[in-house]
Every structure is written in structure tokens, then in C-alpha cells.
């Protein structure tokens, strides 16, 4: 069984296998159908880089969408 790591996703704890990428994270929370922006530790991770960007223990990830606003 692979080792698990805990990260913060949108302010909440989230556990996933060590070595997971941002793309893996999006797939596991079901947001791959949405147009999202991803930010890891205040650094923007562009769509092209999500598959190669490996998450580490303690990373703070923000997954953002466009919602209604004035």
C-alpha cells in the first residue's frame, strides 16, 4: 500500500497517496469537469503543469472557480 500524505485543500485537510500530482487531486475531488484555477502555496499552477506538479505533505492547495459577483 502506498504511503499517504495530508495536505490542505481549500482550507480543509485532505489525504492522498504520496507522489500525487495536482491533476490526481482534481480527479479525486471530482473537479476535472469544471474550469478551475489551482494555486499551491500561493503559486499558480497552470493547467499544463498540473500533471507534473507533485504535491508534498503540508502543501496548501486552493482550487478556485468563477462564481457570481458584481
Amino acid at each position: 500500500m502506498s504511503q499517504m500524505i495530508t495536505i490542505q485543500v481549500n482550507g480543509e485537510s485532505f489525504t492522498l497517496p504520496a507522489g500525487s500530482s495536482v491533476s490526481n487531486l482534481l480527479a479525486s475531488i471530482g473537479s476535472e469537469q469544471e474550469s478551475v484555477a489551482t494555486v499551491v502555496n500561493d503559486q499558480i499552477v497552470r493547467p499544463d503543469n498540473r500533471a507534473s506538479f507533485r504535491l508534498k505533505k503540508g502543501d496548501r492547495v486552493e482550487i478556485l472557480i468563477f462564481a457570481g459577483g458584481g
Partner: peptide
Amino acid sequence: VTVALRRFNR
């Protein structure tokens, strides 16, 4: 049109 950023909610 204006839009706002918000956290994705599962």
C-alpha cells in the same frame, strides 16, 4: 460581465 473567484465546493 463581472465574476468573482470562489473556492470550488465538492
